[in-house]
């Protein structure tokens, strides 16, 4: 193993680590705000990438039907509640977001012919299609059980994951897809070449992390999310809607997931079930951060990425074993050093 190999592996590890970092941030966000361990996080990675690939292949992605279907169900439930509660002023909003928005996307895809669009427009359309699924999933699966225990929420989470993977197979088939890279430019750094897509991944990850930092620190919605994360009851007493906080955190998680998928689709082949393993590695990183600390989770993600890259060189057959074994010493150390107080109820 010479210097060049070390550098190449390091580059590979950091690129993957950046994606894991984004996912671990989303997992920490969703957990702190809603106490949901968001296993379906990875499905948004696959949905984002494969939706984009479908546009490029000139196909209508199946996620469109999912968006339309979920929109109709959400609209029906919310309308019933709104009518029963006499809140007629909400009807317009409910119809607009859950029926009008999918209809607009529908029209855009059928009449706009996204096949010939520039890549950036296709990416935006894919995000516009996949990201709203996040809040809809929250509305349908988690909101009715928002006050349940962490374990119940975890079980719901597993169920949603299995349902979404199954739908993914139905929508996109068993074979994978790749998308063209954002730019063909390459950077020559000494003896190694850094591809344009790698720079895109690193740049976008850093930018997103900075944007999230600003969002939590400076905007009223970000502060509301933080307040809910610190104390749900207290936040509610201060007039923060926990339903809004839940939907917002799922929206962000879906956006981060789908965008991560689009970022790595040119580097690797994405399958309908790829997301789970990527999400799981993000989860290992989130655990390193104790499901609470953003910076530690991000650092953990880079560690996971590097560990993965070097172990694939030294002992490729045991790569996953090494990565997932990492969780055991971390959990031991966590349980020995922290005096955790159950906050439940």
């Amino acid at each position: 193993m010479d210097l060049q190999i070390t550098l190449l592996l390091g580059q590979d590890g950091i690129t993957n680590g950046a994606i894991y970092a984004l996912l671990s941030l989303a997992l920490v966000l969703v957990f702190t705000v809603t106490r949901v361990i968001f296993i379906p996080q990875g499905e948004f990675v696959a949905y984002g990438a494969l939706t984009l690939a479908s546009f490029q292949a000139g196909k209508t992605p199946g996620t469109l039907w999912l968006l339309a279907g979920a929109g109709i169900v959400v609209a029906l439930i919310d309308l019933r509640i709104a009518l029963a509660g006499g809140a007629r002023q909400r009807i317009g909003r409910i119809l607009g977001w859950n029926l009008g928005y999918p209809a607009a996307i529908f029209a855009l895809i059928f009449f706009g012919k996204p096949e010939g669009w520039p890549l950036a427009a296709q990416v935006l359309l894919s995000l516009a299609l996949v990201v709203p699924l996040g809040p809809m999933v929250y509305r349908l699966a988690f909101q009715p059980a928002a006050e349940a225990s962490v374990l119940v929420l975890l079980i719901i989470s597993v169920a949603v994951h299995l349902a979404l993977v199954g739908l993914g197979l139905l929508f996109f088939g068993a074979e994978g897809s790749r998308t063209p890279s954002f730019s063909d430019a390459a950077l020559q750094l000494g003896s190694i070449t850094v591809s344009g897509q790698t720079l895109w991944v690193l740049g976008s990850s850093l930018l997103l992390i900075a944007a999230l930092y600003q969002f939590f620190g400076r905007t009223i919605y970000g502060k509301a999310l933080r307040a809910t994360a610190i104390n749900r009851t207290g936040a509610r007493l201060m007039g923060i809607s926990t339903v809004m906080a839940g939907k917002l955190s799922f929206l962000l998680a879906a956006a981060i997931g789908a965008f991560s998928g689009i970022l790595i689709a040119p580097i690797t082949t994405i399958y309908y079930d790829t997301g789970f393993l990527i999400g799981l590695k993000g989860f290992v990183a989130a655990i390193i951060g104790g499901l609470a600390s953003y910076p530690v989770a991000a650092a953990g993600a880079v560690l996971v990425g590097l560990l993965e890259a070097y172990s694939s060189f030294w002992a490729s057959a045991f790569k996953e074993v090494i990565v997932f074994t990492l969780i055991i010493p971390v959990l031991l150390w966590r349980s020995l050093t922290t005096h955790h107080v159950e906050e439940e109820e």
Binding site: L9, N16, I267, I278, S316, A317, K319
Partner: peptide
């Protein structure tokens, strides 16, 4: 003689070896 997983995002390590 190297191994990789169906779902691996990257096989750089194995390829270099």
């Amino acid at each position: 003689n190297e191994r990789y997983n169906r779902s691996d995002q990257s096989v750089t390590g194995q390829v270099l070896k």
